[in-house]
Amino acid sequence: MNIFRLVGDMSHLLAIIILLMKMWKSRSVAGISGKSQILFAIVFTTRYLDLFTSFVSIYNTSMKVFFIGTSYVTVYFIYQHFKPTYDSNHDTFRVEFLIVPVGGLAFLVNHEFSLLEILWTFSIYLESVAILPQLFMVSKTGEAESITSHYLFALGSYRALYLLNWIYRYYFEGFFDLIAVVAGCVQTILYCDFFYLYITKVLKGKKISLPA
């Protein structure tokens, strides 16, 4: 474990807590893409299948349980509990255009042709594009609540910090995973536009309004 990965995991944890608090306090899921949250639930489910077969540490196991659990709670909030506030008219990204190519790529490009490894690879590739429905929704609605912007900033920062973690691990541990690094770069690049808006606008108290 290194500081970059620890801060990255905490940033990821914070993002999920911000989202859940926003939903619970405002009793609303307005502006949140249910499709992205479904993709995240798929990401965690396919990545943490080794939850019961390989034990790394208490931290690792507890974080995995937390991520899987909260991802399903979030989907439940959107599609059941706070359904009346779900803005399905603006959450129209065709996720099949993500899942099919990502599934095919995971099948072709992976470290080992085994079920667990292919599912892990699928999860890594899917996570890199899972935020697209959410970013698409923000661009369609033309704006995002500031709390949603904080959620996206924390979520985008987590993988950016993982890039630093991989640089650190490459130099100090000789650890290198090309698939995770390439997907992590794609994932972080997708946030760049948002990062710019967040830093130039939200931090000055303005609301984000992506070009609709």
Binding site: R5, D9, H12, D50, S54, V56, S57, N60, M63, K64, F67, H111, E112, E117, W120, Y162, N165, F175, F176, D177, L178, A180
Partner: peptide, 10 residues
Amino acid sequence: HNVTMRKDEL
């Protein structure tokens, strides 16, 4: 590149 490297990352 040892594939069976333990997946210790989240």
